[in-house]
Design a protein around this nucleic acid. Structure first.
Lengths: 152, 152
DNA sequence: TAATATTCAGAAAAATTTACTGTAAAAATA
DNA sequence: TATTTTTACAGTAAATTTTTCTGAATATTA
């Protein structure tokens, strides 16, 4: 599937604000409702638009600590990795987990209320996983940028 | 502002799918339209709900490479940091940038079409910033988890 | 106990999305 | 080259959703 200039304009708008009405979009890109509607539906159907979500304010929810954890496993084989992955998927405080190249195995991003919660998470949830060998933590002091907008 | 159980239920639903109708939400949590509408509006007004966005599919947009960069600045003072921050905000491929504690200064997450694009980004955009002293890159081999859903 | 807020239900109005009809331009085919 | 087919779009009407309004029930406060 090829995205033409109009598709990209629509995607750029919807990435920033999914609550724009079709009419708003139509006006912004000088089209009528029909093509905008059809294109959005097509983009949804093709899976280019994966989902629509609400972005909540961490601070106002009392989530005041973000950390990156570099995790090394005891071994790199399939079963060990899969076991670890499954545990991570069940940890709601882990918002990001990627298997990476380099001197460790996984890069995690974790969001928590405070340091005490992190201590608990580290001791009672992450470090006790049988697959985990090493954890190296970096604490976020200040968030410069955080966006769901992809460059298109 | 205190969130009661009903607010949290609404937030949990909207975090996963912002295209649920008020009626859908009302049905799921056994309420009528009015309180759901009023609560959502209040959550928006208070800034608990920050925005609504569309999540796009990286792969289908030809974005096949994700990397983490650990960046060290030449100095840690305010002007140097601010200069760096401003540049980062203007780089659309940088989707995440956090000032962190530890053996380097910033943790970046960058999304790009391929290795060639990363080479270009590294050489022509990141490493030439006057504030940057050191860059350490980790390539994502496989994405295990990536969510905008906060634990509430 | 009365007055005031707060929360919610139901209904009507306004706005948006969806579906339908048709036209013009571009592309494909004979 | 002419004809058919496809594609993209405009306009309108129906269906759905959001928004607004009215009022009742419960809890809070004076």
């Amino acid at each position: 599937m090829i995205l033409d200039a109009t598709d990209k304009k629509i995607l750029r708008l919807l990435q920033e604000d999914a609550h724009m009405t079709l009419k708003d979009i139509a006006n912004k890109i000088n089209l009528s409702l029909t093509p905008v509607h059809d294109r959005v539906k097509r983009l949804e159907k093709e899976g280019i638009i994966e989902k629509y979500v609400s972005v909540l304010n961490k601070k106002k929810l009392g989530i005041n600590l973000t950390v990156y954890c570099q995790v090394t496993l005891i071994k790199q084989n399939y079963d060990i990795s899969e076991g670890f992955n499954q545990s991570i998927l069940n940890f709601p405080e882990v918002v990001e987990c990627n298997f990476v190249s380099g001197s460790f195995d996984y890069m995690l991003k974790i969001v928590l209320p405070d340091m005490e919660s992190y201590h608990h998470f580290h001791q009672k949830k992450l470090s006790i996983l049988p697959e985990v060998s090493l954890i190296n933590t970096f604490f976020v002091i200040s968030e410069v940028k955080s966006t769901t907008v992809l460059p298109i």
